[in-house]
Write a protein that binds this DNA or RNA. Sequence first.
DNA 1: GCATTGACTCTAG
DNA 2: CCTAGAGCCAATG
Length: 110
Amino acid sequence: MNINKGKVMAKTFTDLVVNIIKNIPRGKVTTYGMIAICAGNPRGARQVAWILHSSSTKYDLPWHRVVNRHGEISFRPSLDFSLQRCLLEEEGVMFDNRGRVDLAENLWWP
DNA sequence: GCATTGACTCTAG
DNA sequence: CCTAGAGCCAATG
């Protein structure tokens, strides 16, 4: 009856973060801090960011739906930067003139 | 096992 | 609004 009898369930912070990000609905965004809190580490926002940029190629994560606390893309402008904004706009997320999204409308909370 | 790094967040000025 | 410093945790070398 135990589905997690062996090694199925994710127990590590990283796996938990990955699981949360994969559950982000389309058209919504969330922050590193939110994910970190849900994963059990309110101070682990950096790890969330690290996981995204480092493991985005390993895991199939919608990294473009993850933004910083200001609702803005964190890393410096690049191809991926434009890609993230494009993907979010495709999902109906509107950006401010300063490149920020309206967290009051688009912030997703598990 | 230690030192460095990182797409963060918070507080203070 | 912007800058500076400190804190926190995990992966990498």
